[in-house]
């Protein structure tokens, strides 16, 4: 870099750029908060769904699955599992409940989490709530997630 471009110019770009874009980011965050309620399915959040989120977290489901594309890539996407399972919370509960404790020889298998009936209902309702979040272009691309 030539002498015409001085260190203090570089410093000013750094400070100016960082402050400007961080403030812009805060403004966009504010706007996002204003827009979100129209599509984030918050009206579906109740005590059961909130408990479902705790069950989701306290069993580290994200350690194998993705949820709206974020998480681990070892097991299927669950953001649309409610649709994939025929819009049936019972099907989701049955699937979780019936996982063999010792796994399946040679294959990936979901652990048996020994959830109570209340927890099973909660996780299923949570996944139903997530399926109701309006994502851009209805992501994921198709039912397979």
């Amino acid at each position: 870099m030539r002498e015409t471009f001085t260190k203090s110019m570089a410093r000013n770009i750094y400070y100016g750029g960082a402050v400007f874009f961080f403030l812009l980011f805060l403004a966009l965050t504010y706007d996002t908060h204003q827009v979100l309620p129209s599509g984030d399915n918050h009206e579906a959040i109740n005590e059961v769904v909130a408990l479902g989120k705790k069950v989701w977290e306290e069993n580290d489901c994200i350690g194998c699955h993705t949820l709206l594309g974020e998480g681990a890539y070892f097991a299927p996407e669950l953001g649309n599992v409610y649709t994939r399972f025929g819009e049936s919370t019972d099907a989701i509960k049955l699937f979780i409940k019936s996982r063999p404790a010792k796994g399946v020889p040679g294959r990936r298998s979901m652990p048996q989490f020994n959830l109570t009936d209340e927890e099973l209902e909660a996780i299923a309702q949570f996944l139903k709530y997530v399926d109701g979040i309006k994502t851009a272009r209805d992501w994921p691309p198709n039912i397979q997630g």
């Binding site: 194998c64 294959r107 990936r108 298998s109």
Partner: peptide, 12 residues
């Protein structure tokens, strides 16, 4: 898929 299962499942 069942390597170390269920002692160390993938998520752990």
């Amino acid at each position: 898929g069942d390597f170390l299962f269920p002692e160390i499942p993938f998520n752990v």
